[in-house]
Amino acid sequence: MTLRLVLVDDDVLVRSGLRVILGSEPDLTVVGEAGTGREALEVAADTDPDVVLMDVRMPDMDGIAATAALVARDPQRPRVLVLTTFEDDDYLFRSLQAGASGFALKRSDPDELVDAIRIVARGSSLVLPDLTRRLIASHAPSRARGAAALPELTGREADVLRLVAGGLSNAEIAAELVLARETVKTHVSSVLLKLGARDRTQAVIAAYESGFMTA
């Protein structure tokens, strides 16, 4: 199965570079490009990609607003991976809050970037788990006032959510709890369902905002 990608960045040089880098991977194919957030919405509607690689700062609707609009249209497809020049905490957290599944630095090694895309598409782990967890932990509590409590979770589900929020992948959780990987997958799915979260990242945000996890 080939992953279909859309590149969104206002700089043609960034786009053309990414197109060549990602296009040389056998399981990735770039199906569309956009230079603004608004354009991204059109292109995504036309091409139905698996993952949208989204720049944050763009003229005519930035990446955060475009991410929110994509998620509002369909919570499951496409997933959004935010690409950023610098680790600007505030922008990154806001994009995760808007519904992005993860973020990667534009300067990261091509292999890491490709990995991040695959992880976002599969949803079996957080992208940059440590960084993401720290970012959410440091930003979420301050905005948590009045946040709804988590729905009722079984003991196992709570264990799983705790480990997901700790940045562990399905395989790592399976090893930790001595469970089959398939069982972990089932638990993760039911946690996401109960939380109304589209992916792990959103579940981690919910876990911190509800006070289930504390910084």
């Binding site: 040089l13 960034v14 053309s16 570079g17 197109r19 060549v20 040389s24 610098f86 534009k106 091509p110």
Partner: peptide, 29 residues
């Protein structure tokens, strides 16, 4: 951030891409 950071990022991506186009990964590329 806007100028140097951006220019370096674009240059980096262009350089990475250029290297890839000169060393094809597969016969069909």
């Amino acid at each position: 951030h806007d100028t140097i950071g951006h220019a370096l990022t674009a240059s980096l991506l262009q350089a990475t891409a250029a290297r890839r186009t000169l060393t094809p990964a597969a016969a069909d590329r």
